[in-house]
Design a protein around this nucleic acid. Structure first.
Lengths: 324, 324
DNA sequence: TTGTAGGCGTTATCAC
DNA sequence: GTGATAACGCCTACAA
């Protein structure tokens, strides 16, 4: 490996001068600069980032924690964060937490040892005490962790209300909800939105609510039971698209026609919903964009610790497809 | 930040001793070991990995290059690599290359500056000269780069033949192929498998072949044209599942019944194929497993540079679903 | 405008 | 068994 010393020797200057050229700060004569540049070129010298990190205490790396990259919601988020990291000269680290707090803590410690510069968390298991007093910048994405931790999310509550309103407008008279896990903030908000929209309807019945785990299979089973016990249901608001797929499959297996006999609306707007048949109407999140913003905000926090930064709540948008 | 020096001071020993305890090598008295352990505990000391990396010239980080994590084939690969990295104490870096060689080279250089320990490449654009004489271990995954670079792939050629044979067995008399990009090794092999299986059939017609780009939309358009000009086609072997979805959609839009009028078989075995209706018959790769093996081999190469390592070709497996 | 030297936190080599 | 100390490669006071 060629070091700054080799360059200095070849250019007949001190390492300090080479350093000045590399980082172009400090005074350096035009002609010596040329010499140094040439030596760098000639030796194909690249500064060692590890040494730099050691000196600066910063690594130019940021990490994203997601439950599981195999869940189709997360790749787009990851892509966005990686794009922005890359654009700003940061290296992107991906961690799958499986929603397990001990994994999160283990990753966190490992990354701190590596002088990670900042972390974006999609987490429903990190506790308030675990995130406060952290010396590295953190941002919550998709799920709020606590009110003091900056977050980038969408208007889950409003979006849920809009989804239910849309089903009503389509003529649904008995609207059910398949919710996400209660420990996930966005699932709670979507549930609350549903509830506020239906609780005063004379037809409302708490049997219309079931809890899913944001995965296809659970929703499939839940929907079968739901529709068999409550055949009067003519609309379902599903808390995410993945479960929406499960609902479509359940309806198919019960020979219930969509949208004629049952309307279904999901949440998220992942590409998958476009591929099912019938395709899935959904409240689409600006997925790429929230990932992008989280990364931008994080980098802002890293590079300008004093700027005031606020949480952001982005808007979801109705995308009507064949399931309604 | 608390350093090894702080621990040494508190335990009344030298940094050397602390280092011995941390890495448990060299002799150290049981009782002093206790003292040191306690001091570490008390100060909640964690060794600084950056300093370690600087000294060792290794970073305990490995990277995976994929074209685009948003393509549903790659998350499972990424998950596998991350799992294995993590298990062996490595940090996982993800890079999206968009199949662009300049991006690959930029990433490569950036990672070398960070003393990356090894890289797994899913690449169709890296050249032989770019990968040879690399000082860090490289492994090709999913796509071969050149015969000298260790690779973990599947038996694309044989799998393609099996796919076509299966269509024949289902009674197909005119079998078309939608291939992947010619610069991707696995696409070429799958194409060759198809060709060797059909070239001697009296019905064979080179119009039955079209080139796709491994994405849904292209295949959708290609299939429409293909089926309109050649209505006699009753079977399609599609080079990957993503394009398989495009084929299904095209058939639907042409009101062609699957599998009655047309049988479709894909390649890859991504979860998506299970969700379409009809669901997609496919030659499934052991996706997680090849990612896992690539990571294991890479780590082997990193930690035991002298062991002889060979390329691996894993087997694909027919999964019959509703499209045939 | 340039050079010297100390330090970032660890590890490993030598002495003792 | 244990302790000094010289690297690892870079950056930045401080001097000159």
């Amino acid at each position: 490996m060629t070091t700054i010393r080799d360059v200095a020797k070849l250019a007949n200057v001190s390492v300090a001068t080479v350093s000045r050229v590399i980082n172009n700060n400090g005074y350096v004569n035009e002609s010596t600069m040329q010499r140094v540049r040439q030596a760098i070129e000639q030796l194909n010298y690249r500064p060692n980032d590890v040494a730099r990190s050691l000196f600066k205490g910063k690594s130019k790396m940021i990490a994203l924690f997601v439950p599981d990259i195999m869940n189709p919601f997360f790749p787009e988020l990851a892509r966005a964060v990686e794009d922005i990291s890359n654009k700003h000269g940061y290296t992107f680290i991906l961690c799958n937490t499986d929603n397990q707090n001990d994994k999160e803590i283990t990753y966190l410690n490992a990354l701190l040892q590596k002088s990670i510069d900042g972390i974006i968390l999609v987490s429903s298991t990190m506790t308030t005490s675990q995130v406060k007093d952290m010396k590295v910048p953190l941002i919550a994405l998709d799920r709020k962790i606590n009110p003091n931790l900056i977050s980038v999310t969408v208007n889950n509550y409003e979006g849920a209300r809009q989804a239910v309103q849309y089903l009503k407008k389509q003529g649904c008279k008995r609207i059910a909800h398949i919710s996400g896990p209660e420990n996930i903030s966005n699932a709670r908000e979507r549930f609350r939105g549903y509830l506020d929209e239906v609780r005063d309807e004379e037809w409302f019945n708490s049997d219309f609510i079931c809890v899913g785990n944001y995965a296809v299979n659970d929703a499939f089973e839940a929907t079968k039971k739901l529709l068999q016990s409550n055949p009067e249901i003519d609309g379902i608001f599903v808390a995410n698209d993945l479960m929406g797929v499960g609902v479509l499959k359940a309806a198919e297996s019960l020979k219930i026609k969509i949208p004629n006999e049952l309307s279904v609306i999901g949440f998220d707007g992942i590409e998958l919903g476009n591929i099912t048949s019938p395709s899935l109407t959904t409240m689409a999140q600006p997925i790429y964009n929230i990932g992008k913003r989280a990364a931008e905000i994080l980098i802002q926090k890293i590079e300008h610790p004093n700027t005031v930064i606020k949480s952001e709540e982005h808007k979801v948008k109705l995308i009507t497809r064949e399931s309604t």
